[in-house]
Design a protein around this nucleic acid. Structure first.
Lengths: 195, 195
DNA sequence: GCACTGATGTCTGCGACTGACGTCAGCCGC
DNA sequence: GCGGCTGACGTCAGTCGCAGACATCAGTGC
């Protein structure tokens, strides 16, 4: 007989997701989430630094997928090529089986400005992490930031498209196309904006 | 004899800036800010939706500067050219006289994750607004988002460079160079990442 | 057995924010 | 010039997010 059920954080996250979906984010208190899985509010805040964070539990794995993609890029790859590699690695983190789950999770986030703010922050911190990794490869400050932020933008756009109701393509395919569109866009401008 | 001094929001912002700089953001309560200018906490929250927002009072003018730049771009301009125009317009919003003030304000923001989160959110909402304006010009969904987010990234990088201690160039000049670097980066990749 | 650790509960308090309601100068129509 | 209306503020009371301090006790190692 164990004193506590294991996996408290996971149970809290699952319960939070359900409660947010039914009652809404603001109408759900941390105490309710905790007690619905037999824990107290205090324990909730031991696992998550704030109430919003419960929705982002596990994101570290996505960050690591990005970094793995950076590391597997060939040594002579240009910054954007490295980012393309990171995108391919990161997108494989979302197989089609996760699509439905991602959709419902996203619909909660989209409904609450505070959650969108946190989501943006998470994306930005991924970009920062990727930029650091690029700098370690010798890419200069500005180029590293530009490339990493562009990658994050491409990821966000592709993800948004991936969870649309009528979308069939894989996230990786969509991301590759969006990146291609970015290159097309800038190429068109490059000819017309002189030094 | 007037019942209240005018410009409550401005006075609150000024007081908040000073208190945050001396005591720190978390160590300053909304009540303290309000009472330091002869108002109550309740009035503080009537002017600002939350405590962080007091630092971003007036940002609407920056958004309008971006939009003005979008509107003054020639009708046949490519999306990135429109963004370049928006950047030139927005950067003129920060003449060199504002550099010192921007620096001290930024040092407060940089010290508190919650404030950085809000700042990111503001930047993202600027990008969203610019993307909407691009769409109204007939630019398609993905291209509009990509161009607008790229513009926001360029702005953020340029702004960060502009407030460095040893920096002498104008914000507009820095932004133009950063944008040029983005085009160079993507051009290099465009040749090597096939369709 | 026995000390030690780590995840949890309990208690308590602060501060961010909100809704409801009261106040009163200035403006506006008559 | 008078009465009603409005808008900016104050007052009061409440909820909830979040954190510090300390107690509890199953499991683990010795």
């Amino acid at each position: 007989m164990v004193r506590w059920e294991p996996g408290a954080a996971e149970r809290l996250q699952k319960a939070a997701l359900e409660l947010f979906a039914t009652r809404g984010f603001e109408q759900t208190t941390a105490t309710e989430i905790a007690e619905s899985v037999g824990l107290t509010e205090r324990t909730f805040f031991r696992h998550f630094s704030d109430k919003r964070e419960v929705l982002f539990f596990g994101q570290q794995l996505l960050v690591e997928a990005f970094l793995a993609g950076v590391d597997t890029a060939p040594p002579d790859a240009s910054p954007i090529e490295v980012v393309a590699s990171a995108l391919q690695s990161a997108t494989s983190f979302f197989p089609d089986e996760r699509r439905a789950h991602s959709r419902s999770r996203q619909s909660i986030i989209d409904q609450h400005p505070a959650l969108r703010e946190r989501e943006r922050h998470k994306l930005a911190s991924i970009a920062t992490t990727v930029a650091d990794a690029l700098r370690r490869r010798g890419v200069d400050e500005v180029a590293a930031t530009l490339a990493a932020e562009s990658g994050a933008t491409v990821f966000a756009i592709a993800f948004g498209q991936w969870i649309r109701e009528d979308e069939q393509r894989s996230l990786a395919d969509i991301a590759a196309e969006v990146l291609r569109e970015l290159l097309t866009l800038t190429a068109a401008a490059s000819a017309r904006i002189p030094r």
